[in-house]
């Protein structure tokens, strides 16, 4: 009985999550997709490392950290451009995007340096 109620709960939860997420603006959804893609790429690399081995360790590290860093920065951008987030309402989205680009630039310069 407990199981059936919990599955029902899970279903209800899933529905409400989906409906809540459907209300998200399109630009945030794009960012979410981007984050998901970056995390997915990082996972692929980790799996590859587990199968093949981590020999050029700096390459592996820079690959994974590039994906993780991209995801983290995109999450930051998402936080900043989110209209519902009251903390950043005086921060224009252009500024947030410029910061995002700068940070990405630094990140990938470092990664290119580290790639070996």
């Amino acid at each position: 009985m407990g199981r059936s109620s919990s599955t029902k709960d899970a279903q209800a939860l899933f529905h409400s999550l989906r409906s809540a997420y459907a209300a998200t603006p399109v630009n945030l959804k794009i960012i979410d997709l981007y984050v998901g893609f970056a995390v997915f790429t990082a996972l692929i690399q980790v799996v590859y490392m587990a199968i093949v081995g981590s020999f050029p360790f700096n390459s592996f590290l820079s690959g994974v950290l590039s994906c993780v860093g991209t995801a983290v920065l995109a999450v930051c951008l998402r936080i900043q451009v989110n209209k519902e987030n009251k903390e950043f309402k005086d921060l224009p989205p252009e500024r947030a995007f410029a910061d995002f680009v700068l940070c990405n630039l630094v990140l990938h310069l470092v990664i290119m340096n580290f790639l070996g």
């Binding site: 700096n58 950290l65 860093g69 983290v72 930051c76 940070c103 470092v110 340096n113 580290f114």
Partner: peptide, 13 residues
């Protein structure tokens, strides 16, 4: 979060 990722990479340099 950005500090950890960027900082780790920079430290490894």
């Amino acid at each position: 979060a950005p500090l950890v990722v960027l900082g780790t990479l920079l430290a490894a340099l």
